[in-house]
Design a protein around this nucleic acid. Structure first.
Lengths: 181, 181
DNA sequence: GAAGTCATGTAAACGGTTACATGATTTT
DNA sequence: AAAATCATGTAACCGTTTACATGACTTC
């Protein structure tokens, strides 16, 4: 069975603690989702595949009043996860429409480049704020170690990009009124 | 006809100057490809769609000794491009496997987090070098204006990420020998 | 004349999102 | 009683990549 990076998101989450699919989705949405998203349409089928391959093991949670299947890593699954961690990363992709607009802004009217840079700065300010709010909602334990470092990275990165765009915007003429106000 | 961001990559490139599909691909590969890639499998069919919609106009290049179709923006196409530029960006996605490994590195042995951070730093150093070499290969005209700013942005961003990872790595214990090399 | 580049194109596969469906439980 | 949340799942669709096919022209 061949695993892709999304499979490892699931293995990685289950490496932290046993969880059901719904919990995985929730955790992804407040953590990896900013650099590796995952939808239900991927998670549930993938949980089955991983279970069929013996990398995870799911059982009906008797504790819960709800019908839920809690999955946990098998030793084989943990081994796979560790091997993936040690191997070099392959995928590195971006789809950044706001940067695309900066790139092509020469085709716009005067001030288009500046407007595009300011718009991009605004986006990253907002994303930074969102990450800070996530940071505020997490406990001390979650903010320590590697996962906490990743969150701090996201915040630092968005701050950097916002500042870069703001600085650069200053060197690209006055914005057109309609695009500013 | 509904256009997606990739359609605008093509419109945007043709907004700079008339080109054939092969040239668009070449330009993409040394510019937007780092934040918006495009393959032949998209470009050629999309050129037909855009031509059918009257946004671009292609004609057999008689100048060239080769069989090539040079496309140019129509007034309608330029208008579409300008409207897209003025509208807020929508897509902002990332698939960063190296950061995923940092995030899950707690599941690895001691030093795994540091190794993951160092590996990520190395990647971004390499990417920065590649962008600098692209910068060196471009003419002065291409490096001025918005497209040049985008390239400088890429370089600054990769430098920032590499430095952040290197700094952070120092705070995550000694790396395991086998993982360092 | 071989290798490399220019140039156009397509089919199959893949990864992923969206939207929908269902229903139980919990909170207001 | 209504609304929100928990929980699982699937089918259709979409954008994109990969791999392949073809052939002319150019450079070594």
């Amino acid at each position: 069975m061949d695993l892709n990076a999304t499979s490892y998101v699931i293995l990685g989450m289950l490496g932290m603690r046993p969880m059901c699919g719904y919990e995985i989705k929730g955790l992804v949405d407040t953590s990896t989702r900013f650099f590796w998203a995952a939808s239900y349409g991927q998670i549930y089928p993938e949980l089955r595949r991983l279970a069929a391959a013996g990398l995870i093991d799911g059982e009906r949670d008797a504790e819960s009043s709800r019908r839920r299947t809690e999955f946990r890593l098998t030793p084989a699954g943990r081994e796979q996860l560790e091997r993936w961690l040690a191997a070099p990363a392959e995928v590195q992709e971006m789809r950044d429409e706001s940067l695309l607009k900066v790139f092509f802004s020469g085709a716009g009217g005067p001030g288009a480049t500046r407007s595009a840079l300011e718009a991009k700065a605004t986006r990253h300010r907002a994303l930074g704020a969102r990450l800070r709010s996530i940071q505020g909602s997490k406990g001390e334990r979650e903010l320590s170690g590697a996962t906490g470092a990743t969150l701090r990275f996201g915040i630092a990165l968005n701050d950097f990009v916002a500042e870069w765009c703001e600085r650069e915007a200053l060197e690209h003429g006055a914005p057109v009124e309609a695009e500013v106000g």
